[in-house]
């Protein structure tokens, strides 16, 4: 009886109603636009960029003959010391922002996870920086870092006794890379905190209760329950922030413009200069492909590792 009912409830194949169209064709009609859009705005530009990367094409020289030059753009990029310096600047920024954001984000999440009065208010206050536009953040930190009137310099001077205008956070070769790390950490630590908080709140209380019964110390509970169970969340946060910071552009442009000299010139800033200021389209396409392969490769390895951690 049940089987009969189920059979009668199954709709007549749609294709029979629309003359001449199979189920497969209808499926394509629905999926087609999405696939077309994907091809048009993702796949085609990628293939086109790969094609351009083997040419001497310059988008501002439309009358110039475009020649295929093989791997010359790739050779030049890999042999260009300025490119390697920009990759170094990116790696420095990436490593230290991730380090501080994970450390502080997790610590804040752990503190916020405690039950205390004003918990919600503090959470709201802490997440405020990440709601701001990077352009706004860049601008006001430029003022904070101003050696003569900047609050940051005054605070440091207050604690160290140094003259506030004796050091320049954005103008010093040694301090500028750290100044952008500080701002990015200030802005995005709340994001890591929120993800960690989700991880912490997903740990069932009974696991801690069982540990208490087994007389496990707080420290042991932390290392054997909290950290392993939050780790997948933490790794996800690192993945998001890592990809974002690899292509960091707006904040750094606002703060230092890549300077002083080129010490904070990230790969993305370098790429933008090559592509849209120098108009070396072929060369910058090759650089973009190298960056794409790097991010894609690193992200793939990382996602595999993340999946393994989740399976544990």
């Amino acid at each position: 009886m049940t089987i009969d009912r189920l059979a009668s409830a199954t709709p007549v194949r749609v294709a029979r109603k629309i003359k001449g169209l199979s189920d497969r064709a209808i499926a394509w009609i629905f999926v087609g636009p999405t696939i077309f859009l994907l091809l048009a705005i993702n796949i085609f530009p990628l293939i086109w960029t790969i094609n351009l990367s083997f040419t001497n094409y310059k988008a501002n020289r439309i009358n110039r003959e475009v020649k295929y030059i093989g791997l010359r753009n790739y050779e030049r990029i890999l042999g260009d010391s300025d490119i390697w310096l920009s990759m170094q600047a990116t790696a420095h920024f990436l490593f230290w922002t991730l380090f501080f954001q994970v450390l502080l984000g997790f610590a804040l999440a752990w503190l916020i996870n405690r039950k205390f009065r004003g918990n919600d208010l503090w959470t709201t206050i802490i997440v405020l920086p990440m709601m701001l536009s990077p352009a706004v953040v860049g601008n006001f930190w430029t003022f904070l870092y101003q050696p003569q009137i900047g609050l940051f310099n005054y605070i440091i001077a207050f604690f160290t006794g140094a003259d506030p205008s004796s050091f320049e956070m954005l103008g010093s070769v040694d301090l500028a890379p750290w100044s952008i790390v500080i701002v990015d950490t200030w802005m995005w630590t709340p994001f890591v905190m929120l993800i960690c908080l989700a991880g912490l709140r997903s740990i069932p209380d009974y696991i801690y209760e069982a540990a208490e019964i087994d007389r496990a110390s707080k420290l042991r509970q932390f290392f054997t329950i909290t950290i392993p169970m939050v780790l997948p969340f933490l790794m996800l946060a690192v993945l998001f922030r890592g990809i974002e910071n690899f292509k960091m552009f707006d904040l750094v442009v606002q703060l230092t413009g890549g300077g002083p000299g080129s010490v904070t010139e990230m790969a993305s800033i370098n790429l933008k200069r090559e592509a849209f200021e120098k108009w070396r389209t072929g060369y910058s396409s090759a650089f973009a492909i190298i960056l794409f392969v790097t991010v894609f490769g690193l992200a793939s390895i990382y996602v595999k590792a993340l999946n393994k951690v989740k399976e544990r």
Partner: peptide, 10 residues
């Protein structure tokens, strides 16, 4: 280096 205000790096 010797005759401009501090912070005028850009």
């Amino acid at each position: 280096k010797t005759a401009t205000p501090p912070g005028y790096t850009n």
